[in-house]
Write a protein that binds this DNA or RNA. Sequence first.
DNA 1: CCTGAAAAATTATTCGC
DNA 2: GCGAATAATTTTTCAGG
Lengths: 174, 174
Amino acid sequence: MRLKMCIHMVERNIFGAVSRMDDRLDGVDRKILAELTQNARIPVAELARKVGLSKTPVALRIRHLEEIGLITGYRAILSPLKLGLTHVTYVEVSMNDTREAALQQFNAAVRAIPEVEECYMIAGGCDYLMKVRSRDMADFRRILAEKISTLPHVGNTSSHVSMEAVVEQNFRLG
Amino acid sequence: MRLKMCIHMVERNIFGAVSRMDDRLDGVDRKILAELTQNARIPVAELARKVGLSKTPVALRIRHLEEIGLITGYRAILSPLKLGLTHVTYVEVSMNDTREAALQQFNAAVRAIPEVEECYMIAGGCDYLMKVRSRDMADFRRILAEKISTLPHVGNTSSHVSMEAVVEQNFRLG
DNA sequence: CCTGAAAAATTATTCGC
DNA sequence: GCGAATAATTTTTCAGG
């Protein structure tokens, strides 16, 4: 009870902001995260050997990293190539209403589109940039016409097609 | 031996292109992938219950999906917030040399920068768009100055700072 | 191609030190 | 934090439909 309260206290600083937790991670934690980030199914025994500790503390550290929310989950990574989903397009969306309520509506609607892999609101015009993954150009056109253009408060869109994936997804720690 | 040959044959069509495999996935495979994509550590027994089969065929299907390269691995997902890495910037890079050798050099160098989470070559000017994750604006400036501006054959760059992550990363199937 | 249960292997947890 | 013993899970195997 007392411990939990302590953890809560360090998570929010005096300004009420969520503080960084990474500066409390030592070298071993970093190694554990680096390994788990590359192979989520590595046995604790092997991980312990790699980081130079025994199983007990490594298992405890992993549990702790999960409990503080630093590890949010474990996921299988699929091959876009084998799925036939290699067509990547970045779409810039400009809004015709940039009031908070309109943005909230837009955000919620975007999150319901599975083809939108990422979406960020970009400074300097209150526009959005989203990454759309599709089967091919025809598939993208359909997604743009049916799902993106029809999002609430969308002004116009500008699409930028990828010719090559140089870095597909990088899970390494900064 | 004969089976393997057969598998090989369906992976490349008469044009030599890698063919899609997703249209050979039945509903059960899709369910398995959907689950594993959300929780890589789900026990086979529980997965079997969810998809309505016994453990044996589910374990075989998972192994098969791994062997054909559709599942490329399992990874722990970390919280950017807890890592103190919430600052996302998209950088457009235009090249002053767009010949193939220069592009190859650039690609290789980009892949060595851990802060570059994604990087795509974009049609319509042979430019690149990359997503950079940093601690804050000061951190980003350093990365831009020291790591991105100094990449081989870079002309100029244009940075677009994210104000809000609407969709951070979407692993759902298309 | 799937079922269901038994067997084997691996993995996680719990101790005293 | 260590290392061994214990306990729990999971994967594999196999006969049968």
